[in-house]
Amino acid sequence: MLDGYPNEDAGRGELIRVENLTVGYGETNILEDVSFSVYEGEIFAILGPSGCGKSTLFHAMIGLLPIRKGRIIIGGEELGPEERVDSLHRIRHQIGVLFQSGALLDWLSVGENIAFPLRESTDLPEEIIQHIVQLKLELVRLEGCSEIKPAELSGGMTRRAGLAAGMARDPRILFCDEPTFGLDPNTAMEIDELLIEMRDFLKVTIVVVTHVVPTLENIATRCIMLDREAKGVIASGRLDSLKNDTSDQRVQAFFQRRIPERQSQV
């Protein structure tokens, strides 16, 4: 288990509040009446098996999916069923995102991927931007990779470069979609360490969507678990209490890697 778990300093103030959120695609609601809060300085995990709506919730929180009912308040700015471009713009100014693929612009070098959002959304001079790029690359241990194109990076390096790009503007909140999915255990551990470092050094609050249990064990301060059939949260709290104290078979099945018992279909 890494040093950063759990962060006892968490709980300084509510940074994200999700209230009675309903979202979905087409005619189907994927999640209904979901509510939870994320506090400043914590690493908050959204977990659950594939298809439970983790990514749907993630996309709604970063404003990529319209909200059908309820609201999301991030840093005092509200997102609801009515489209509010100014609100969304202010929210996006406070957040950074690490997508599962790393989501680097492949025609730009790694360094340019970090510099790009700074050039576009701040008035920082180029000299300072170059130093920020270097700092971010040092943070994710990719010194000397500034000129490399994303296509030339390995999976773990791409994820680290994506993390540096996501952190480029020093956001208050970093959203990570499956940050360690598909990586070998050592590389996944490195990403976990980096996320904890980001939280501790840059004081960023992190929301992670994942179904990788070792990552959860390494980094998560608190978590919620989603379920496809329930279309919402079936458990929430500290990870150890979810793992050890729950009587919910679905939660037990997730952590113990076994098929949940079902009622006989015959």
Binding site: L118, T122, L124, E127, I128, I129, Q130, H131, I132, Q134, L135, K136, L139, M167, D170, L202
Partner: peptide, 11 residues
């Protein structure tokens, strides 16, 4: 202080 501030000190 954030990384932009540290970058300023480095510059």
């Amino acid at each position: 202080i954030d990384t932009a501030g540290i970058a300023l000190l480095r510059s």
